[in-house]
């Protein structure tokens, strides 16, 4: 997440980005809901080279008791990077300063969305694990968690979809990859409510001008509608094609999730 200024070239000779995308193009995203049999709701998001799985448990009894509220359910998201998810500084497991921050901001984003008053004294636990990371994991994590919560049947006012907008070599670009995140000028993850496009999360690492922020939110909101469509498709697929949960984690290029057909 450091915005080191460096001489690394982030634009190819043909004007495209390093992975061949246009400035306002998302990476390929696959979402599959209901991937874990024993969680109340779950989702797997493969977002470019990111692989994120989210599992929802609850509402269930809140332990420790001092966390519980007599008025509402507490929403506890735990963002965790697997020790094998990347090289470099993320290659250690356990709570770190970074993962605690992400757990907190993700929980707070969802507190605007989940209708928690129906379940006093309980906790809704959302476990988000990053299996493989390549920049933009918090957006993938938010997206996965939203699908998992909907899959669990937790009452929500909205779906939530997230995307990052950043600045690379003076241009606003959508959905930063790891290189663009590390060596670009700015990274702004943002999350939107599906119903009215409200901004539920906005973080800024590296500076943007006011105009750029405005344009960036516009760009992010447009892209979040695409993400939302994929989220809803994944949820609908659970019921259109009931199947046992078997998901290939490694997809061949161009391959889409194809749930096994019922016999």
């Amino acid at each position: 997440m450091s915005s080191k200024t460096s001489k690394v070239a982030l634009t190819r000779d043909d004007g495209k980005r390093l992975d061949g995308r246009a400035d306002d193009e998302l990476r390929p995203i696959s979402i599959e809901a209901h991937v874990l049999n024993d969680a109340d709701g779950s989702a797997l998001v493969i977002w470019g080279k990111n692989k994120v799985v989210a599992g929802v448990f609850g509402p269930r009894e809140c332990v420790p008791r001092h966390d519980q509220s007599p008025y509402r359910a507490v929403l506890r998201c735990r963002y965790n990077m697997a020790p094998f998810c990347s090289l470099e500084e993320h290659g250690r497991s356990g709570p770190s300063r970074r993962s605690q921050e992400l757990s907190k901001v993700i929980s707070e984003a969802f507190e605007n969305v989940v209708i928690a008053e129906s379940y006093p004294k309980t906790a809704i636990d959302v476990y988000i694990d990053i299996l493989q990371s390549d920049g933009g994991t918090r957006c993938a994590a938010l997206t996965a968690a939203a699908v998992a919560l909907a899959d669990a049947g937790i009452p929500m006012k909205d779906m939530l979809s997230a995307v990052a907008v950043g600045k690379v070599e003076g241009r606003l670009v959508l959905d930063l990859s790891k290189e663009e995140d590390n060596f670009g000028q700015s990274d702004n993850p943002m999350a939107f409510a599906s119903r009215n496009g409200e901004v539920l999360l906005y973080q800024m690492d590296g500076l943007l001008t006011r105009e750029e922020v405005k344009a960036g939110i516009e760009m992010g909101h447009k892209a979040s509608r695409e993400v939302l469509k994929l989220q809803l498709d994944a949820l609908a697929r659970v019921y259109e094609q009931p199947h046992e949960t078997t998901v290939p984690l490694q997809l061949a290029p161009g391959q889409k999730f194809a749930p096994p057909q019922p016999a």
Binding site: D40, G41, G58, A150, D151, G153, I154, M156
Partner: peptide, 18 residues
């Protein structure tokens, strides 16, 4: 508020939930 089946008369039958 929850993923549901909506019938023609506008009633919701939840597909999942506690």
């Amino acid at each position: 508020t929850v993923i549901s089946l909506m019938s023609d008369d506008g009633k919701l039958v939840p597909l999942e939930g506690p």
